[in-house]
Design a protein around this nucleic acid. Structure first.
Length: 976
RNA sequence: GCGGGGGUCGCCAAGCGGUCAACGGCGCGAGGCUUAGGACCUCGUCCCAUAGGGGUUCGCAGGUUCGAAUCCUGUCCCCCGCACCA
């Protein structure tokens, strides 16, 4: 299409937005607008959006985040920067594989999901192969992103995992680098395990228990000296071990003996399997007991110097922990209530052969000080809540919650306790656990907080793997460098999130960075592991700079694979290009990559949803800091909230889930973009208002008409005060819009660039009585188009060309404010006019009369003189009623007004100390006289303007005396 | 509990020491335009008021200040995160 062939085929017709969008997209394509090439000597702006996972099409939330990135890119382009906005496809991990499996199985839910996303039913079966997802979804993303008008350079796209040998090579290089720096470490890790499949049971493979993860228990070894074995009691609160008074077992349960590394352990029978996954080797000795048989045993408990008895507790369940509970009646309501139950039941004691005297003697031991609670919180809470029995499960759960929370977060250990006396409970917990484990008095054990069932129907268990790889994000030196990056190189949008990042950096610990299953890149030095999805995507923005020079070129993958010299040279400047040359990979080509990287890097703006603060965005900074020179650390991180639809959270069940495709089909690109800009800004959840998106169309048409069609009545020559006012206002709005765009506050930008510009224009047209100055209109149209271009580029391109300009709106410079020289006076004049209108309307409203004639009396010179003096005094900080009165009374022209002058001085001094001074450089009579016709139109009556003191012959109702600078006296004459 | 962010005129939402009865949008009311409706434009939309004013407001209670929606303290409530999940 020739550049001019679209010159307004529908001029005079209704604006056909869809056609406008289509032509703009075609023209940009033709122009190669989206294809970013390094331009030496030009400042670059590299913006990215975290590539999305290719198991679904983009929805309106993705669109929000992507559009914001695009707004910024286009704005920066208009500032003259060379911009790059690339995109890629994330396919690492298990979801795609799992979903493909479900299609194979004919899973209806999964099929429906695909159909809901717009996949034709007869194509659904093709999605039984993960690679089909990887081929299909990127196309849909590309289609929708293009239709939304994102300025993406698709030549640089790619997908992750070893299905893409080039990216695979890049990630392998990255991990070898990290490994060299000692930042990838190996350790133990509890995982949820599918015992049937013999593999990790990831969230996506679960039928039940999504999101459930292992909980850490401490197994306390309660030594039975008689039998030289240990009863293993499971607890979440090892720090309370100082308060043990007894042990609870379920008398109806079977207990078995296990042997592990020479020790004999006793646990309830149902938990034996779980032990098999966490303790290796472990064997059953064949010895078993009923719980009843264990009652009365006396065991030695760690952290106490007493032998404590094993007692029957009906609340004990083998479903939780080990079926053995160590009893801390001071802090555990369950334990205390069970103790009371037993103590109050002589028959039961007798039935179990217990000595009532001994049982009665058991008392809770105070171990924790909690502000606002007694020494024995469990005792207090059981009494307060009148809990009558250990069988009252719900009341006890609530009581436990209350006591645990308060104790854990606010309590401190009693000072007399060994090792942890005086410590906060939160710290003591770890201290005691470490101590007991080190002494061999306890073991760590994991259990699932809730049931997990695999899609195959197997019940998930916890398994300890001992060869898990971690990113060492817990490393203090590394954290320190990351903090420095936030201080020195990174700007956060909005600024507040920097504190959140700091916090995340502080609490972040080592991150399990490999998985046993799913798609991904194999860990280079241990290929049974696959690098997980958050770890293979931390520095890939660098890969964008060269992706198009590797993929879909004649470069052979083999020449890149494990060619670490290549990446080290391109990204780090290490070595020489010649070192990395290999086969198809020529030195020229390598230099070209280096040039691209140096031109584009670092990332200037990375925009994502706020959910990525605590993982991806932080990881990204960690990895950049570890690998790159400081000059290539990220520069800008931008975060936005979630998108709600018409004020409600988007969800499939509510039926308000909108894909980007649906939005585009319903509203078109322009209204969708405007709706997204209007949806929100900052961290708050944004609201995509469908009504706005469909109604904004009308506003756009009107906008379009006004910026493209010259007004009917124009004039030229001298500028009037109305003209100057509009120019001043446009300058002001330009400044505001510019600042808002810079800060990624796009709703504010839209407010200034669109709504406020239009409302200023409306006022101007009335104010100018329909006689529009042709230069002013030109300026208005030019500003309106440019200011809005980052948000609705299709429409502004069209408007720009209709205005007879060459090229694209997007190629124009973003305007500078450039206020006219007399802007201040122009605005003050307009304020004066509006003041008269407002005051008159107030009077009308108060009196209920409709005026026939309004007489406006401007303040006399002597009042101006007083205000002027007041301003001078204020500037010197000497303004008060006395000083002002004294000063002005030295002036004979003022003094002759006697007490009127004194009173006015008094009130002026008071007013100025509170608010701003009225503008004194307005020739009020002239301004009002010039605006008289306008005033008459607005007030719908005759308006006459007088200088105070020059109108003795008209009735002024005493209002002429009221006149003040900036606030003329007004007399309303009404018939009726 | 910890970290972050909030509670503003029916709804959404700006403001974050004086220019604030408090921007803007939606909704609602009135007028203009129009054959009518819609769209558009204007005015109004806490209470009182026949003169541009007064009163009471910005979760609640105190406080600092000549002056507070804005600062401080306390208190109640809401949202997000506290991970190994993409």
């Amino acid at each position: 299409m020739a550049p001019d062939s679209d010159a307004d085929p529908e001029q005079g017709e209704d604006l056909d937005l869809a056609a406008v969008e289509e032509r703009a997209a075609a023209a940009w394509d033709e122009q190669g607008l989206h294809e970013a090439e390094p331009e030496p000597g030009t400042e670059s702006f590299f913006a990215t959006y975290p590539y999305s996972y290719m198991n679904a099409v983009p929805h309106i939330g993705h669109a929000y985040t992507m559009a914001r990135t695009d707004f910024m890119v286009r704005f920066q382009r208009m500032l003259g920067k060379n911009t790059l906005f690339p995109f890629a496809y994330h396919v690492t991990g298990t979801p795609i594989v799992a979903a493909a499996e479900r299609i194979q199985e004919g899973d209806e839910d999964q099929i429906d999901q695909l159909v809901d996303q717009g996949i034709p039913e007869d194509e659904v079966e093709d999605f039984d192969d993960p690679e089909h997802w990887i081929e299909s979804f990127p196309k849909l993303w590309q289609r929708d992103a293009d239709d939304l008008g994102l300025m993406i350079d698709w030549r640089r796209d790619f997908h992750t995992t070893d299905l893409n040998p080039f990216y695979d090579a890049f990630v392998r290089w990255q991990f070898r680098q990290l490994e060299d720096e000692g930042l990838v470490r190996r350790g133990e890790h509890p995982v949820v395990w599918d015992p049937v499949e013999g593999s990790v049971l990831s969230d996506h493979d679960r039928r039940e228990g999504e999101g459930v993860s292992p909980e850490e228990y401490t197994l306390i070894k309660l030594h039975d000296p008689e039998g030289d074995r240990h009863l293993l009691a499971a607890t979440l609160r090892p720090e309370t071990m100082f308060g043990q008074t007894n042990v609870w077992i379920d008398p109806e349960e079977t207990y078995v003996e296990l042997e592990h590394e020479g020790e004999r352990w006793v646990v309830a029978e149902p938990v034996v399997d779980a032990f098999g996954y966490q303790f290796d080797p472990i064997e059953e000795t064949g010895q078993t007991w009923t719980g009843r048989e264990l009652v009365g045993l006396r065991v030695e408990a760690p952290a106490t110097d007493r032998r404590i008895p094993v007692l029957p507790g009906s609340f004990v369940s083998a479903e939780v922990g080990t079926g053995i509970v160590t009893s801390v009646p001071s802090d555990a309501p369950d334990d205390y209530r069970a103790l009371l139950d037993l103590q109050q039941d002589p028959d039961r004691m007798e039935a179990f052969g217990l000595d009532p005297e001994e049982i009665q003697a058991i008392e809770p031991i105070a171990i924790i000080d909690t502000p606002g609670m007694g020494d024995l919180p469990a005792v207090d809470v059981v009494a307060e809540r009148s809990i009558e029995s250990q069988a009252d499960r719900q009341a006890l759960e609530e009581a436990k919650e209350e006591v645990y929370k308060r104790g854990f977060y606010e309590g401190t250990m009693k000072p007399e306790l060994a090792r942890v006396g005086g410590d906060p409970v939160q710290e003591a917990k770890d201290t005691v656990q470490d101590w007991l484990v080190a002494e061999g008095e306890a073991e760590v054990f994991y259990e699932l907080a809730d049931e997990v069932v695999s899609r195959g129907g197997a019940e998930g268990v916890v398994k300890i793997v001992d060869d898990q790889w971690f990113m060492a994000y817990g490393d203090e030196d590394w954290k320190h460098e990351v903090h420095r990056a936030f201080e020195e190189t990174i700007d956060c949008f909005p600024e507040d999130v920097e504190q959140q990042f700091d916090h995340v950096v502080d609490w972040l610990d080592d991150w399990a960075c490999t998985r046993a299953t799913g798609l991904g890149t194999k860990l280079p030095w241990d290929d049974q592991w696959i690098i997980e999805s958050l770890s293979d995507s931390t520095i890939y923005m660098a890969y964008y700079t060269i992706a198009h020079l590797l993929e879909d070129t004649d470069v052979e993958a083999d020449d890149v694979y494990d060619n670490d010299e290549l990446f080290s040279y391109v990204f780090l400047g290490e070595g020489e290009a010649a070192d990395a040359t290999k086969g198809s990979l020529t030195e020229d080509r390598i230099e070209r990559m280096r040039e691209e990287f140096l031109h584009w890097y670092p990332v200037d703006f990375r925009n994502s949803g706020k959910d990525l603060i605590q993982n991806h965005l932080t990881f990204m900074v960690f990895n950049h800091v570890a690998l790159f020179d400081q000059e290539h650390w990220p520069r800008g991180l931008s975060v936005n909230g979630w998108v709600t639809i018409d004020g409600e959270k988007m969800s499939k069940s509510k039926g308000n889930f909108i894909t980007l495709r649906e939005a585009l089909d319903e509203f078109g690109a322009t209204a969708t973009r405007l709706g997204l800009a209007n949806a929100g800004e900052g961290l708050d959840d944004a609201n995509f208002d469908r009504e706005f998106a469909s109604n904004v169309d009308r506003r756009l048409r009107r906008w379009h008409e006004q910026v493209t069609r010259p007004p009917e009545h124009t004039r030229s020559g001298e500028l009037t005060s109305a003209d100057r006012w509009l120019l001043a206002r446009l300058a002001e709005l330009t400044g505001q819009a510019r600042q808002a765009y810079e800060d990624a506050m796009f709703r504010s930008a839209l407010q200034s660039a669109f709504f406020d510009v239009m409302s200023a224009w409306n006022r101007y047209r009335r104010r100018a009585l329909g006689e529009i100055h042709e230069d002013v209109w030109e300026t208005f149209a030019d500003r309106a188009i440019r200011l809005l271009t980052p948000i609705v580029p299709h429409l502004t391109r069209h408007a720009w060309r209709e205005g007879g300009h060459e090229g694209h709106a997007i190629d124009q410079a973003f305007p500078e404010p450039e206020p006219p020289e007399d802007a201040q006076a122009a605005r003050a004049a307009e304020e004066l006019i509006q003041q008269v209108i407002d005051d008159t309307r107030d009077i009308e409203q108060a009196t209920g009369e409709t005026p026939d004639e309004v007489r406006v009396f401007t303040a006399p010179d002597w009042k101006h003189a007083i205000v002027e003096t007041a301003v001078q005094l204020e500037d010197k900080g000497e303004l008060n009623p006395g000083s002002l009165t004294g000063r002005v009374m030295q002036n004979d022209a003022i003094k002759q007004h006697g007490s009127d002058a004194a009173d006015f001085a008094q009130s002026t001094a008071e007013k100025l100390s509170r608010g701003p001074a009225p503008s004194l450089d307005v020739d009020e009579p002239a301004v009002l006289e010039e605006a008289r016709t306008f005033l008459e139109q607005e007030l719908d009556c005759t308006v006459r303007v007088f200088r105070a003191g020059e109108a003795e012959d008209v009735e002024d109702g005493g209002k002429a005396d009221r006149a003040e600078p900036g606030r003329p006296g007004i007399y309303v004459e009404a018939s009726a």
